[in-house]
Amino acid sequence: MTSCHIAEEHIQKVAIFGGTHGNELTGVFLVKHWLENGAEIQRTGLEVKPFITNPRAVKKCTRYIDCDLNRIFDLENLGKKMSEDLPYEVRRAQEINHLFGPKDSEDSYDIIFDLHNTTSNMGCTLILEDSRNNFLIQMFHYIKTSLAPLPCYVYLIEHPSLKYATTRSIAKYPVGIEVGPQPQGVLRADILDQMRKMIKHALDFIHHFNEGKEFPPCAIEVYKIIEKVDYPRDENGEIAAIIHPNLQDQDWKPLHPGDPMFLTLDGKTIPLGGDCTVYPVFVNEAAYYEKKEAFAKTTKLTLNAKSIRCCLH
């Protein structure tokens, strides 16, 4: 018999989150649709729960009410004593943790798909938090293969000092899905179709896995975050240069030392320094102006996964 890495157990509980950011409308629209008619997301033997994560922000069509829901799922915020004085999103995070967690427990949901849009030209993107997770690498390989020839990129946010504390991190297997470009507060049919297909293929993978299909060893190309880059700023902290036209919409493309990065209003080009080629992502993302992030630098690498098969009882 072929030796293989056996994944822990079959997958039982899956959640699909929309509206973690209330103005990213593809996930909101799909989740609302699936709450009314969820036939397309159901798979035999699998509990799939669509869920609106930040209903107040969705109602106002804004990213958040008090603070970013997708950055506060750490033990400090989840452990705060519940009171009306807490920011709305912290209270909501505790409610979500109660419903789908608790985080880092045996009772937490197996998989959470968190649906997002970006204003950046990132196409279909899967966000991975753990480079050693054979199950998710296999799932992402399946999704990428199923979507081809449509490109699907994998963004690895594993980093020693950049801690995200994402909404989906309460699950055993957290999956971020990011599709763009799409303006905030807008629905685009092409973007919706791409996100819908990503979810379909992900659920198909889980179904095949649960039925005992063995997935042979595989490898995927990923883009691992190195650092986030702020806009150049003046002495008052105001933005002093904008994304250069040569960099705009060039997510995932190589940016070499000396290539144009920013452009000042008086026409001066600010190039990339250093001696390493990087791959920019979230270029000129609207939501990241407040976070002082013009783009993120990534490096390209390959992740390998062992063969996996479900432990059938």
Rank of each mutant, 00 (worst) to 15 (best):
M122H: 10
S105T: 06
N70I: 05
C218A: 06
L255G: 00
C4P: 14
G212Y: 04
T53W: 05
C218K: 03
F140L: 08
A148I: 07
V28M: 11
E9R: 14
V175Y: 01
I170K: 09
D68M: 04
G45L: 05
N121W: 03
I41A: 04
A219L: 15
H33M: 07
G237S: 07
V283Q: 00
F51L: 07
Y109C: 12
V28D: 02
L128D: 01
K60T: 14
P102A: 10
N77P: 10
N117A: 05
D259W: 04
R309A: 08
K59N: 12
F295T: 00
K144P: 00
D110W: 00
L162A: 09
I6R: 10
R196K: 06
G185F: 02
R92N: 06
G27K: 01
D85S: 10
E158A: 06
D275V: 15
A93P: 05
D266M: 06
I11T: 05
A165E: 12
L192F: 08
S146N: 10
L69P: 08
L265W: 09
L126N: 00
Q250D: 05
L255C: 15
R309Q: 14
V278M: 08
V283P: 01
R196Y: 01
T269I: 09
N54S: 15
A7R: 11
E76Q: 11
Y173S: 15
D85G: 07
E227Y: 03
V175N: 00
F282M: 13
A171K: 02
G38P: 10
L35I: 14
I177E: 00
Q248E: 14
T2M: 08
L203W: 01
R63F: 05
Y153A: 15
L156G: 02
N246K: 14
P50R: 02
K13I: 04
L147D: 00
L265I: 14
K300Q: 08
F135K: 00
M261Q: 06
D251T: 02
Q182C: 06
E285A: 11
D107C: 10
N284K: 02
T298K: 00
S108I: 15
T26I: 02
I177C: 05
N284H: 03
H116K: 10
L128Y: 01
V90Y: 13
N37G: 07
F215H: 03
S161W: 11
E89M: 04
K197P: 02
